[in-house]
Amino acid sequence: MIGDAINAIDAIDAIVELRRASRLYRRGTEQVAALIDVTMHLMPGELVALVGPSGCGKSTTLNLVAGVDRPDAGTVIVCGVDVGAAREAELVMLRRRCVGMVFQAFHLVPHLTVEENVALPLALDHRPDPPRVRDLIERVGLSSRRRHYPSELSGGEQQRTAVARALVHRPKVVVADEPTGNLDSRTGAAVLELLAELRHEQGASLLLATHDARIASMADRRIALADGRLVGAEAADRHPSGSPL
């Protein structure tokens, strides 16, 4: 079962593996290749930055890894689950147990409070854990705001809520799509630092799509995409600040 597969992941080297993965979209009568023959992997606890211009395939890659999309060709293995071949129930379990997501536009549920938004992944999986929710809210510094709605929060506070939500179910992989894209540089840095610290504490891998060369340089490795193809992969230089990123 999926649960076994996810738990057995510790015994496997790569937590995420793409083998010649391709994804095509249809735009009218035209077929657009969003991702072509991409091969890459993500090791447990590793932070990998996906870099490249807009439309290069970063978000498509993240969607495949998060199990919200399937490849048209090739293989995508996440936490031991073959995303292309998995049944719907397996993908649901993958999203519930293995993957956490952080979006550029936060994507909090507007009618739920901070506390409820953070608790949502656990609630959808029918395993509420209020102490864990409270702990994470405290860790992201939103205890005093836990009963506020997203519309009552600043951008940074919303993204901190999203970070807590992405980690609350102890995922093995966190995918973050331009998580600082809607934030000023100072707030963005603070959110990133928080994300890095928390995922580091629980040993989750982080796959981060970014335009920002400075953020990319903080990753263990950088993977560059262009026009849907992988055009480069290299270990990044560590940031001079010695950030845990």
Partner: peptide, 17 residues
């Protein structure tokens, strides 16, 4: 700000509606 519910699954899912 208004009062909220304890984040149990059933209550939370009901709140969504």
């Amino acid at each position: 700000m208004i009062g909220t519910i304890a984040p149990g699954s059933a209550d939370l899912l009901r709140a969504l509606l």
